[in-house]
Amino acid sequence: MSNPAGAFQINVRAAIARARVRIKGTLHDPVWLIAETIIPIFSIGGYVLLYRALGAPASYTGFVIIGGAMIAFWMNMLWHMAAQFYWEKEVGNLEMYLVAPISRMAILLGMALGSAITMGLRVFGILLFGTILFGVSLSIGDPIALLLIFTLTLASLYSLGILFSSLYLLWGREAWKMNELMQEPIYFLSGFYFQVRGNVVVPLAMQFAAALIPMTFGLEGMRRILVFGEGLQSVAFDIVALAVFSVVLFFLARMMLSYMENLAKKEGRLTLRWQ
């Protein structure tokens, strides 16, 4: 190779390449677009009709649309990122990553970046269909606050994704059970389809438990901006909480990935199949 690239440059190229694979792979399959943008409308529609039948305030419909859109990122982090790392091991890609002069973090960041872009399409689709079909009016009160909340939500979620990926290195297929175990309680606690914070019918203990999930802050902040038209000041707490989650989870994820990788190498099961 002429002028060999530096370590940082190689890792950036690897992350971009992994993101491109994700995007290209997705775009090669148009069925995905229908499955990811049209199908979720059915479950969202169920909640919208229910709230309307119960005479709930119009803002509740907005909650559901935003929650339904953001579920994509949660699912993506759990299933398309952490579980995909297991798949990478099964097909032999992990060995290639270990042999190449790159950090595993670069690959995971690439996976996160690629899925954030493809999931962005889903979110856009749901917001568009949701607002047209159900007549929900969403307004961007403060674009900077919205951008901050959205970016930090993704950063904390994907850091959590990298953390889970390291568990897949160690547990293999067993880690799927953990995903299934976490899926529904987190849907419930973080309030994908209803507001958690300040909701009088949600017990305090549940609100406290919800505060341990970064998604709760992301959803709350986005709803305040998009449904109630509030600004930076009223979502400052959510922004700070998400920033703390992002930093702490990122460092935890790095430490855990390195620890699990070394442990798996020592025990010789990093490239074992069908664990």
Binding site: M1, N3, R13, A14, A17, M96, Y97, A100
Partner: peptide, 14 residues
């Protein structure tokens, strides 16, 4: 081609 390009990037090929 895309697969080969992907793996070339793991070695930082311009």
């Amino acid at each position: 081609r895309e697969n080969l390009w992907f793996f070339s990037q793991l070695y930082g090929l311009p």
